[in-house]
Design a protein around this nucleic acid. Sequence first.
DNA 1: TTCGCGTGTTTCCTATAGGAAATTTACGTT
DNA 2: AACGTAAATTTCCTATAGGAAACACGCGAA
Lengths: 211, 211
Amino acid sequence: MSEDSENMREPLHETLQVQRGETEASLQPLRLGERVRSLRLGQGLTLEEASKLTGLARSTLSKIENEQISPTFSVVHKLVNGLGIDLPQLFSEPSNSAQPSGRRDITRRGEGKPHPTATYEHELLATDLSHKKMVPFTTRVRARAFGDFPEWIRHDGEEFLYVLSGAILFYTEFYEPVRLEAGDSAYYDCTMGHMLVSVSEEDAEVLWVTA
Amino acid sequence: MSEDSENMREPLHETLQVQRGETEASLQPLRLGERVRSLRLGQGLTLEEASKLTGLARSTLSKIENEQISPTFSVVHKLVNGLGIDLPQLFSEPSNSAQPSGRRDITRRGEGKPHPTATYEHELLATDLSHKKMVPFTTRVRARAFGDFPEWIRHDGEEFLYVLSGAILFYTEFYEPVRLEAGDSAYYDCTMGHMLVSVSEEDAEVLWVTA
DNA sequence: TTCGCGTGTTTCCTATAGGAAATTTACGTT
DNA sequence: AACGTAAATTTCCTATAGGAAACACGCGAA
């Protein structure tokens, strides 16, 4: 990093800002109060009961729900734990986002769209839907040795891997290989070379989701 | 609810507390500062740069990292957006391992970060990574009846569901409920109300990925 | 060594979060 | 209606969060 003058700071500032998306003035309204209220009422709780559960004062809860205050992190933590808030609704943004699009696609076991390769036998799931943010598929790992692959598999995006059965060796470009068994999972950048090899008696089966 | 005296409050308090697991004094330390610092350093940022990115004062960031203050939710929000942190990660317990720079995170079976609710028992996966496009977690479905849910669960984004074991009824707002068994999967818009109920002898276990 | 200068910490002050209690609102009941 | 009760809201006060600026600590260059 070379420095020229004292105003080399601003450009960096701007650059970083842009990279991260809006930070300063923008940042959605974050209807936290609204959500907390609907969550509480959904459980049929009064402020008094919620107060007991969370250890927070009734008044505090009321103010949070009416967006009169911005609760501290410790208070939010008590809220989450006390009311047993479900994860997805916790980190999803406002959700006032209109269009309740109601797509749904069920794929029965073994009914996916087959896509065999030399080393893997993929089965694409939810293929009736297009424009998905994620692409889920199950895979039977036929490869048995590192050498079965001509080269690293690399592509854009991120990938989540969950071992359904059997055991695999998970090779990645920048790490030592790891043995994964049923129930183990991994999350990684696909730009980093990666590949799977079955090491169990039978071919291992894994679930992959890419985004 | 009959009231006798002013001290009938405590017993109820205790009762409710127990039902939900510890809330008050307990609630693990939540080394927020520690995590924020490692996240910031992991990105090679100085307090000054982080300040520009988040719009927060250097001093404020310093105090947060040194656990001298509990930031308000709005401040946490700026932090999350400015530094690209996953919110769920902040509410699950601190992870011992520092952020790897190569972006790969392995989660062993049963080693996720627990997050129990009244109806589900979630286990967050890959919590060492932040800024993920997807959030994967496994869930034990405790709910046994439609009525166990006060209302539809609804939030932004899309969700992929894969049944690991047991059998569930998959209720969605705009479709008839469907029975799903091990190996079956579903992909749907989360803005549409949805919920799961176990219908097998034992609680069903599912894998969820949201994006 | 001393001078800068970038970095993190601390101080000081104002704005505001959070709890206890008073007040108001919303409903049943008689 | 007027009352009783339980809910939520508001008030009042203290504790504390957050920003600006001063301070302290390295560390490299002259």
